[in-house]
Design a protein around this nucleic acid. Structure first.
Lengths: 211, 211
DNA sequence: TAGATTGTTAATCGATTAACAATC
DNA sequence: TAGATTGTTAATCGATTAACAATC
């Protein structure tokens, strides 16, 4: 199994390689890709080893070939189907963001309890009432990802609903831990927590340098 | 120095402790807090050790006392001053979110290059033209945090500007790595990267369970 | 006292980095 | 060939977990 940290870096490598490819560069060394991405050359080589890709000691890695290898690994052929629950300010911002992520991501539908927010199209995505959830999701056989942008008290119930639609991955923007069955992977993106963490570390750093 | 992972967990403990306190619970054991937060009892005790807090072997930890200890540690008395650069969909959503984070966070100002977006108040936060940046930021002696919600090509320049205003912590929502001086702590929140990572891990997980 | 929990050290686990033979 | 880089193993580092004497 490829470590999740390696996956993160491979996604970053892909975007840097694209840039270099457009600039006409043909080959790249591990230390160059390391420099660009902010990791060591050893890290880069180890990541590529983890996914079974080889370069050569003369030129390093062939950029276009490595690019298509990483794409093959990361990008499913039919795109990633996503549903979103909670069409508040953050939910709407994410919907607008998904419009720019086509065709890799396909946002299927948004859901909300508030009748004011439902039965409209926001940034190209139709918003349904949560009461129509099963009707709508049954029309889409394989939805992979669920985005949770509901208030904290509704998060667990909303998550359960998304899981009932068959998602195997959840991104939870609410500040509560949600319980999920074994087969569902959850990533927590608690913004308030992150902001506070950064504030703390930055403050600690400043104090340290003042000594 | 307290490990950044411990800080994350302490923030989570705080919110769980608040809940228990409101429910009238007076003491809590490490295994209970572990259960609630999804970590081991040993982890909880180690985190509290890292910040120098002690309970006792009879009752565990006194909730209100531990709560005020964590607050004392994490929450600066005057609140955390924040500026935001890039008032697009995501930037606006975050501004609305900050309105709910008072008084711990004080959002001072938002900035954008687009004249259409400047000189208005969004979710209680005034938006200025980037050309007024130094004038506005000089009025606020200690701004700690900068939020970057600009498009990728502008990210580095916007970061440099925020740093010139004295921020020591940055949260970067753009999908590019930004270079910063030694004394500035940067946290990357690349949503597209996170979504794709979750999609990959979820897919891998599903494949595995199908075997 | 007997039993459970804490605080802390030792053991384990995983991820990163260093080192180096093999290769071009 | 000489020099640089790769692929991979060994060493290091950091974080988590287990274990247990001290405590209540």
């Amino acid at each position: 199994m490829v470590p999740s940290k390696s996956i993160e870096r491979l996604i970053a490598y892909r975007s840097l390689l694209k840039k270099r490819d457009h600039e006409g560069q043909e080959y790249i060394f591990s230390h160059q890709l390391g420099e660009l991405s902010g990791h060591t050359a050893a890290q880069v080589r180890r990541d590529l080893m983890a996914v079974g890709y080889s370069g050569n000691s003369k030129n390093g890695y062939h950029i276009q070939d490595l690019l298509s290898f990483i794409k093959q690994l990361l990008e499913p052929t039919e795109g990633i189907s996503v549903i979103l629950s909670g069409v508040g300010n953050l939910g709407r911002a994410i919907l607008s963001y998904f419009a720019t992520l086509r065709p890799l991501f396909n946002i299927i539908a948004g859901f909300d309890v508030d009748p004011q927010k439902t039965d409209r199209v926001i940034h190209g995505c139709r918003i349904y009432s949560i009461s129509d959830f099963s009707t709508i999701t049954q029309q889409h056989p394989s939805i992979q990802l669920g985005i949770l942008t509901v208030p904290a008290p509704e998060a667990q119930a909303a998550a359960d609903l998304l899981i009932s639609a068959g998602v195997c991955g959840l991104i939870n923007f609410s500040p509560v831990r949600i319980k999920t069955p074994e087969h569902v992977y959850v990533e927590h993106m608690d913004m308030a927590l992150t902001f506070e963490k950064v504030a703390f570390i930055a403050r600690e750093k400043t104090k340290r340098s003042e000594l």
